[in-house]
């Protein structure tokens, strides 16, 4: 990546298998301290599985078959389940899309936040509650004293997501993994939560790995972006460089399919023909080849490596030099 500082989180060749197919295939990326990395892609591209694998939270059907996840100088994939439990919440935390599904409906939110603190710190209940109260204030919840004693059903979706963030951050982890944290929220509330996450990055130096399908969210919060397609990273770059000058046909078409200011209304938007291959259809070559306007025989036979395009921009395409042709299609 383009950062000079040594990475805080370093994912190398992460590979996850479901039923013999690599649904996450050789994914590597680094996140520097206080930076936001976005993993973007459409449903089924493996972005959520990648995020679960970072914390060793893969579902039963999935298995990590290769790769390492280094947090500073420790390989999280080499830890025992017991050691992992100690690391989760304290060093690396995760929040999910639907906050109301992640909170215990029968426990007050104060108790849930305090429990997260007590799990990792040998403190009294009242001390843990003090911390919880402080945390609620930090995430911008008005009247924290009253809120501590409320149950999740008494709070709105935006409020619940702030509670989730409180639980995730109360032990000051270095990395927060956020899996579609604003997808279930209204836009005005989404803006508040994104602002909150940016503030936390600035104040606490927390690094964030955010999983999203929304290019607007990426444009708002990310420093670096990895675009995933069918389990692999298609392109990885600093955010401005990715939007200004995409080097992978998939990224370029994806960006072009979002209506922009300069598009004349009611004209045709660029589309990507076909559909994402299923696990059983993964071939030997580039997994985007069947839908790619630039694809040649080589693309179907041989998997492209991530080529370095300079400035921290890398793309897994055999035909980066032919990108101007895509821009014509996408214009």
């Amino acid at each position: 990546m383009n950062t000079a500082a040594s990475p805080l989180l370093s994912v190398d060749n992460l590979t996850v298998e479901i039923g013999g197919a690599n649904v996450v295939d050789g994914v590597s990326f680094d996140v520097a301290p206080g930076k936001v990395m976005a993993l973007v892609g459409e449903s089924g591209c493996g972005k959520s599985l990648t995020s679960y694998a970072l914390l060793g939270l893969l579902p039963d059907a999935a298995r990590r078959t290769a790769g390492t996840v280094r947090l500073q100088d420790r390989d999280l994939t080499a830890l025992s389940e017991r050691q992992l439990r100690k690391a989760r919440g304290k060093e690396i935390s995760i929040i999910f899309q639907e906050p109301s599904a992640s909170l215990d409906p029968l426990t007050t939110v104060g108790a849930q936040i305090a429990a997260a603190y007590q799990t990792h710190n040998n403190v009294s209940r009242s001390e843990a509650y003090d911390r919880a109260r402080q945390m609620l204030a930090d995430v911008g919840i008005p009247d924290p004293d009253r809120r501590l004693h409320q149950y999740p059903f008494e709070l709105s979706g935006g409020m619940c997501q702030r509670i989730m963030i409180s639980i995730a951050l109360i032990c000051s982890p270095q990395v927060l993994v956020a899996d579609e944290p604003t997808t279930a929220l209204d836009v005005t509330i989404q803006a508040q939560i994104l602002d909150l996450m940016k503030k936390l990055v600035a104040d606490r130096g927390t690094s964030i790995v955010i999983i999203t399908h929304d290019m607007g969210v990426v444009a708002d919060i990310a420093d670096d972006v990895a675009v995933m397609y069918a389990g692999r990273i298609a392109e990885i770059a600093p955010v401005q460089s990715l939007f200004d000058d995409p080097k992978h046909p998939y990224t370029a078409l994806l960006l072009a399919s979002v209506p922009k200011l300069h598009h004349a209304p009611k004209t045709d938007l660029a589309t990507i023909e076909g559909r994402v291959p299923t696990l059983s259809e993964f071939g030997a070559g580039c997994r985007f080849a069947d839908r790619c306007p630039l694809a040649t025989e080589k693309c179907r036979i041989e998997q492209p490596p991530l080529f370095d395009c300079g400035g921290g921009h890398r793309s897994a395409c055999w035909h980066i030099d032919r990108m101007p042709e895509i821009r014509k299609v996408a214009a």
């Binding site: 709105s156 935006g158 409020m159 209204d186 836009v187 005005t188 509330i189 989404q190 803006a191 508040q192 994104l194 602002d195 929304d214 290019m215 607007g216 969210v217 990426v218 444009a219 708002d220 990310a222 955010v239 401005q240 939007f243 960006l255 979002v258 922009k260 200011l261």
Partner: peptide, 26 residues
């Protein structure tokens, strides 16, 4: 407020746009 809350898929535009952030919820 709605317009400023919807993120534009362009980092330069999104980060330079004037924000009109709402307090509280519906």
């Amino acid at each position: 407020a709605l317009m400023s809350a919807v993120p534009e898929a362009d980092p330069a535009v999104q980060r330079s746009k004037q924000r009109f952030v709402l307090q509280g919820e519906l």
